[in-house]
């Protein structure tokens, strides 16, 4: 019961290609969700229903996958998604202070989006860059050896 929700033609073609790779249609759930997140910016319940319909899965299965993987988001995010690692190595090297700084600078709590929908701040566990901690991820770019100044520079450069 997707209320007029539909992939664009281009995405549909990509989906075709992806689905073709799997023996079962349902196995393409994760890439399809990823496509959907790109297309609709968040996987809302309507999107879940649409995806479930596309792949012939039950809603619950789609929701299971959605809740298991952290990179799918059920709410629309800001333009820039800052994911700051707060795991052991990063915390030892000052991630907590950086988090506090980011919160102050953006004037939001972790997990929130700025009112202008520009930034979303969230904390994550290990991003796999412990050697160059502290680390943050801005959309799909990783920034290592962070300092407050470094963050300022990064954020200032953003369009």
């Amino acid at each position: 019961m997707s209320k007029g929700l539909e992939f664009s033609k281009k995405t549909k073609e990509r989906l075709q290609a992806i689905v073709a790779k799997y023996p079962e249609k349902g196995a393409a759930l994760l890439p399809t969700l990823w496509l959907a997140q790109r297309e609709f910016s968040a996987i809302t319940p309507e999107v879940e229903e649409y995806v479930a319909g596309l792949l012939g899965l039950s809603l619950v299965r789609v929701h299971e996958a959605l809740s298991f993987y952290t990179m799918y988001t059920p709410q629309p995010l800001g333009k820039y998604h800052i994911q700051l690692c707060t795991n052991i190595s990063c915390s030892l090297l000052g991630a907590e202070e950086l988090l506090a700084y980011l919160k102050k600078r953006l004037n939001i709590e972790a997990g929130e989006t700025t009112p202008d929908k520009k930034f979303t701040l969230s904390t994550v566990e290990c991003l796999g860059y412990c050697g160059t901690a502290p680390v943050m991820r801005l959309n799909e770019t990783f920034y290592e050896n962070l300092t407050e100044n470094g963050i300022d520079q990064i954020l200032r450069k953003l369009p």
């Binding site: 039950s58 619950v60 299965r61 929701h63 299971e64 809740s67 298991f68 952290t70």
Partner: peptide, 9 residues
């Protein structure tokens, strides 16, 4: 009917 699932991680 597949009404139940295991959510989260």
């Amino acid at each position: 009917t597949e009404e139940l699932g295991i959510f989260d991680r």
